[in-house]
C-alpha cells in the first residue's frame, strides 16, 4: 500500500509552525478565524479580541481578559474564548 502518493496536499512550509500560533496552550488568544468573508475585518470589532468589548473594558468589568484575571481564569479552569 502506498501512503505517500505525491499530491498538492500537506503543509506549505514547516508543519511545526502550527505549534507557534499565538494563543496555543491558553484559553484566550487567537480570535476566531475569519473565513469566507463572514467575520468583520480584524480590528473592526470583537473579532480582534476573543472577549467582548475592549480589553480595558473587560478588565474593568473584572472579566478574564486582563492579564492577571486571565491567569486566574486558566488556573481555575475557566475560559473566555470560543
Amino acid at each position: 500500500m502506498s501512503q505517500n502518493t505525491p499530491t498538492a496536499g500537506g503543509f506549505t512550509g514547516d508543519p511545526a509552525a502550527a505549534l507557534q500560533i499565538t494563543g496555543s496552550g491558553a484559553c484566550c488568544g487567537s480570535p476566531a478565524q475569519a473565513v469566507g468573508g463572514i467575520l468583520p475585518p480584524a480590528g473592526a470589532t470583537a473579532s480582534g479580541d476573543p472577549c467582548c468589548g475592549t480589553r480595558r473594558a473587560a478588565r474593568a468589568a473584572d472579566s478574564c481578559c486582563g492579564t492577571e484575571a486571565r491567569a486566574d481564569a486558566i488556573a481555575a479552569g475557566q475560559g473566555c474564548c470560543s
Binding site: Q3, T7, G9, G10, F11, A18, S24, Q33
Partner: peptide, 22 residues
C-alpha cells in the same frame, strides 16, 4: 494531507484543542 491531496497551513483554531494542548 499529502496522501489525500488536502493542503494544510498553520493557522489559529481557537477551540478545544487548546485545552488538551495546554
Amino acid at each position: 494531507g499529502r496522501h489525500t491531496g488536502i493542503p494544510l497551513a498553520a493557522g489559529p483554531v481557537a477551540s478545544d484543542n487548546r485545552r488538551y494542548g495546554g
